[in-house]
Design a protein around this nucleic acid. Sequence first.
RNA 1: GGGCGUGUGGCCUAGCGGAGAGGGCGAGAGGUUCCUAACCUCUAGACCGCGGGUUCGAAUCCCGUCACGCCCGCCA
Length: 634
Amino acid sequence: MAVTRHPYTTGSGTRGMFLSLREEVEAALREALSALSLPTADLGIEEPPEDVPAVLASSVAFRLAGERGAPPPEVASEIAAEVDVGECAYVTDVSTQGPYLNFTPAEAYYADTLTAAGDAGYGRLPAREESVVVEHTSANPTGPMHVGRARNPIIGDAISRTLDLAGYDVSRHYYVNDAGRQIAVFTWAAETFDEADLPAPERARADYDLVRYYRKGSSFLEDASDTEREAAESEIEAIMQGLEAGDEETHERVGRVVDRMLAGMRFSLDRLPVTFDEFVPETRFMRNGNTETIATRLEEDDRAFLEDGAWQLDLTDYGIEKELVFLRSDGTSLYTTRDLAHHEWKFERFDRAVTVLGEGHMLQASQLQAALSILGNDTDQLTDVLYSHVNLPEGTMSTREGTGVDLDDLLDESIARAREEVEDRLETRIRDDALDDGDVARIAEQVGIGAVRYDIVSKQPSKAITFEWDRALDFEAQSAPYVQYVHARTCGILAEAGLLEEGSDATNDDPLGALDAIPGDERPAGNGSERSDAAIDVEGIDPAVLETPEERALLETIARFPAAIEAAAADLAPHTVATYTREIAEAFNVFYRECPVLEAPEEVREARLALVVAARHTVANALWALGVAAPESM
RNA sequence: GGGCGUGUGGCCUAGCGGAGAGGGCGAGAGGUUCCUAACCUCUAGACCGCGGGUUCGAAUCCCGUCACGCCCGCCA
């Protein structure tokens, strides 16, 4: 019996029909080329343009034309004649179109896709025995999160989710900078200045409260007289020395301020929602002596030298002109020295480490990699994902100077605009499902937050973004609501068919409850028990009745989802998942227009309902990977 | 000055060696007695910054050049 069902399934996930198809095509093509005594190094597998009725194609004939002494189309025919798809479960035919070989999927390709995507966990790849720690955000605890760095948690969280779906064992870390001069200044300022001399906080929250002291301290140091400054500097210096020496009282003083600040900042992150498995304090690596050990080990390297009393590392061997200072002349460590200890700690606990950081840290990051290598680590374990900061039209955003847009303000504004949108549409709404105030609030939250996240995650991190309100908060097509709407539409149909409990995600007054549509930190697991779901019995369904081009195109798009996750995980490129969501949303909308579901004849109706279920799972899980809510109604 | 990154229709963006360069916004024209029109269809608009090169084939690779961004602290 030919095994056509989930041939690559292990554990709870499946790699999907598209990847299976690709492997079959590769094998069949390789075999044909061998039979013709042609090289098989480059098979030229690619996805054909939209109007070509094939799922995969090959352009090998171009490359082999010279060797074969015949024009590419002729070589293509020759190869096609040799290809045997008899053993393939998912390929039914190979044909040529000029120099191209086109592979047509078999009926089982569509049938198995419909079955696989009937699982609520569709898109989850089989578990790998590989742990990854994703470090992201790690913003200095000196003030509220602002938009300039907002790409970090959003990209970092999407990478974490995508790796998770792809089968990795993922941990999310926030590395807390609770050492160093900035924090010493902050602690000194918080203990020194009087609340009465400060402006009112912008919000009643610890981070907005405390940042006033930090800003006050910074401006004081700029404007102070020499004697005032010297007095302040000696206190700041004392804090830094205390931290370096592992002094318990200093650590507590700093900790009080940092912990409060961080607790405040976490409110902003929770709204996205972005959460962490662990907050790793930088001082841990000073207190446990590892930073000191690192410095000692570095001193022993030939590339280390002492200049002006400071220990440095010559990194020209690694193509880095700028030497790395790892011990100041006063014997204290620097950020990178501690980060070295931090990374060795990560390497001991995880197979791989991914760090999401702003482009400004690039030199720093390459110095870190070089030094890690000198210390004998395998730096292939570490990958940096760099993003370009979000700037204002008038310049950069700065916590210290108080220039910039707070993330909270952006989210508030986005939700407010989304709410206006929902209310405007209420009047012309056709669907008879009587949204109540709770629904309006829920939808505004899901759409407002989703739009911000989607806007950021859908772009390549390396591209610069200049922040403009209207552009960031555009709810028109090619934004989160476009995709979210498709999910709501699938749910609408399923609810109408009695396959979904209507409004199941909308029945609470808790403002955070709106976030439940993202199954919290529960992952698409495969049992679908965490949320209302349409149980469809795929057994009695004949997928062959799904024969219109729109149905086929939608199924083909659904079939590619696991491959899209795999590629996004391999490249650490969640924006490609966003591109995918756009494609499936488009395919669904065309299907929706052309193919009535509920009014269709019995057999077609059942099959189309199964297709809607499959589309829903795919869209929901793709949005999950991006950290964008999937509303059941809007 | 050096290093890294980015340059795709008026604006934003995908594609990063192969089939007339996809989308979206904006502009123009249509579509709803029918599962939610936050939707769909059509039209106009691009010598993929510029100049060379490699290749059967370049937006994609290489070299040069220009523009913009970031970095070049005993800061983080």
